[in-house]
């Protein structure tokens, strides 16, 4: 089965992919995804910046009902899923959380992963980014 990443501009590398944002040379603000101008200051220039892979759950919720299109459900149909912000230190990133309900909490150590989002019409599996519990951090 062939796979592809959901949107090329969000990632750097493939094995494993890392998230790439941008960092301002003036005020050091980190944004995700990349953008060409700084939302905070006028003088900085933005350059590509690979984000840390480890972070802590900053907030979370459950998507309990199927979203309307343009949401694309997985091939097996909609299943409720967790969403949250992950604190990566220099920036908080919103992401799907592949963490079961019994484990999920603010402050939980997580690390970057990919997960199947949906399938293209030709059967290609489309991957999006997510965070899962960090086994190295978990005691």
């Amino acid at each position: 089965m062939t796979t592809r990443l959901m949107a090329e501009g969000l990632f750097e590398g493939v094995d494993p992919p890392r998230l790439v944002g941008a960092r301002c040379s003036g005020c050091h603000t980190v944004v995700f995804p990349r953008q060409d101008s700084c939302p905070r200051c006028a003088d900085g220039t933005m350059s590509a910046h690979v984000l840390p892979v480890r972070g802590l759950v900053w907030s979370w919720t459950l998507q309990a009902f199927p979203p309307k299109p343009p949401y694309r459900p997985p091939s097996g149909g909609f299943q409720p899923y967790h969403v949250g912000y992950v604190d990566l230190g220099e920036v908080l990133v919103e992401a799907r959380l592949e963490v079961p309900l019994r484990e999920i909490r603010i402050g939980l150590p997580v690390r970057l992963t990919t997960m199947p989002a949906y399938h293209d019409e030709d059967g290609t599996e489309v991957l999006t980014f997510a965070f899962r519990q960090d086994p190295e951090e978990d005691r």
Binding site: M6, A7, G9, L10, P67, Y71, R72, Y81, A117, T128
Partner: peptide, 8 residues
Amino acid sequence: GDWYAESG
């Protein structure tokens, strides 16, 4: 980007 809505 479309990915934001497509990924729910």
